[in-house]
Amino acid sequence: MKVMVIIKASKESEAGVMPSEQLLTEMGKFNEELVKAGIMLDGQGLQPSSKGARVLFSGRERTVKDGPFAETKELIAGFWLWKVKSLQEAIDWVKRCPNPMSGESEIEIRPIFSPEDFGDALTPELREQEERLRTEVAARTKK
């Protein structure tokens, strides 16, 4: 199964405080372990929400809201994409992770849908389209 591991933002990360050399070193070692174990598919840190935007949908209307956004505890500071055998395996790996923030922090784990989860709504044509797009994206990232 694939999971997204979401590192929640803090007041410091939203203020643009960069991680220390020590934390970068510890995270680098943790990421190496993930890669060697065949777990990590991708991962990135995110800029503060002050540098982002949200697009709000209401029927056919689209409204753009520039950051920063309120409720820091609901924002994302970074993520990983992992391939694991189970949610428990992901939990076990997260427990080994260095604390990503200088104080209290929270990491959320969310399973990613697989094609089977969509049942009959994912027709053979839609499944073929999805596979074609994934292949195209993979080919582009190899360049």
Rank of each mutant, 00 (worst) to 15 (best):
Q44W: 11
L126G: 13
G28I: 07
R127W: 00
P111C: 03
F30W: 15
E136T: 12
E89D: 06
E71W: 04
T25I: 05
E131F: 05
A121N: 03
G103T: 00
K143S: 09
L46T: 12
V137I: 14
L23D: 05
L23R: 10
V64E: 09
K85E: 15
S102C: 01
A15C: 05
A90R: 02
V64S: 09
W93C: 03
K143A: 10
A121P: 03
P111A: 06
M18S: 13
K51I: 11
T123G: 00
E136W: 09
E33Y: 07
T63E: 14
T123L: 02
L87H: 12
T135R: 11
I6G: 06
T72Q: 00
D42H: 13
L56D: 13
T72N: 05
E89G: 07
S105N: 01
V3S: 03
K8I: 06
F113Q: 03
L34A: 14
K83P: 05
F79T: 12
P68T: 06
L41T: 11
K83V: 13
W93N: 00
M27P: 03
V64D: 11
M1F: 08
L81E: 12
Q22E: 15
F118E: 00
G119C: 00
E61F: 09
S20H: 04
F57M: 15
F79C: 04
F69I: 07
E131Q: 11
K29M: 13
K73T: 08
M4Q: 13
F30N: 01
G43C: 09
K83A: 14
L46V: 09
E32S: 14
E116R: 01
